[in-house]
């Protein structure tokens, strides 16, 4: 495979031409915030937090999907990008009901971490305080859409890794929501195997285990790497848990 060279934030790098900007940045410890992306799942470029600037192009590109070409000049941390990232987090916060103080993942939440990363001291757009549906009909799990950021990780892990395809997105625009089995109560789902994979990949407290109280839920993601390694390399090895 061809090797290409390019620059990120003024430093020169080379990489295989099939690598995404995000993969390369992670290899070199260049921080780029992400939310919808999760190693082991397909890439959808939905949240736009990972946008980067490419010299000579007016369009910003999501680092998780874009691949560099020879001679490309990439910037990951300009004032414009910082402004957009903060605005995205503000919109996510204002479109849901995130009362961190009473949330199961308080202190281990990817949305909280993003808020800190972008320096979110307050939200400048009016909070919508929407009325979103909570479904606690499943015997083990709950989906509280008030805390959903529509990253679609649950949709993808259920379809791509578990092969059950319980989840989809229903509705349009601001009314988008995660629905199960064509909008049936989770507890009545005939396709859900109760494997819990969606709960573990969810970046927020939107999907959680019953019985967990404030701050108690830790999302264990090591399983994903294990399954993906097994599938791609036919190696059933317990990998060290890199991500929480």
């Amino acid at each position: 495979m061809a090797i290409i060279t390019f620059s990120i934030d003024g430093e020169h790098y080379s990489a295989r031409e099939d690598q995404t900007i995000l993969e390369i940045a992670r290899e070199h410890k260049i921080p780029i915030p992400t939310l919808c992306h999760l190693d082991g799942l397909s890439t959808v470029g939905a949240c736009r937090l990972c946008l980067v600037e490419i010299e000579g192009s007016a369009k910003l590109q999501p680092a998780c999907t874009a691949k560099p070409v020879e001679g490309m000049v990439i910037r990951t941390n300009t004032d414009r990008l910082k402004k957009y990232r903060r605005t995205i987090v503000e919109l996510l916060a204002s479109e849901g009901n995130h009362q961190c103080a009473v949330c199961v993942v308080n202190g281990h939440c990817e949305l909280q971490n993003l808020a800190y990363e972008v320096g979110l001291d307050h939200v400048r757009v009016p909070y919508l305080f929407p009325s979103k549906r909570l479904d606690a009909t499943h015997k083990d799990f709950v989906i509280d859409r008030n805390r959903c950021v529509l990253c679609t990780r649950c949709v993808r892990v259920c379809h791509e890794v578990e092969g059950a395809h319980v989840w989809d997105i229903g509705g349009r625009g601001i009314n988008c929501e995660i629905i199960g089995d064509m909008n049936q109560p989770w507890g009545e789902s005939e396709s859900c195997t109760s494997c819990g994979k969606c709960v573990r990949v969810c970046p927020t407290g939107a999907l959680f285990e019953k019985g967990a109280t404030v701050g108690e839920m830790h999302k264990e993601r090591g399983f994903l790497k294990y399954i993906v390694t097994a599938r791609n390399k036919q190696q059933w090895i317990a990998t060290a848990h890199e991500e929480e």
Partner: peptide
Amino acid sequence: VSFGDCATTGNVTAMRNR
């Protein structure tokens, strides 16, 4: 100064908004 999460985000006090 907005002092605490309720002043800053509405937080628990705003859970009644629906």
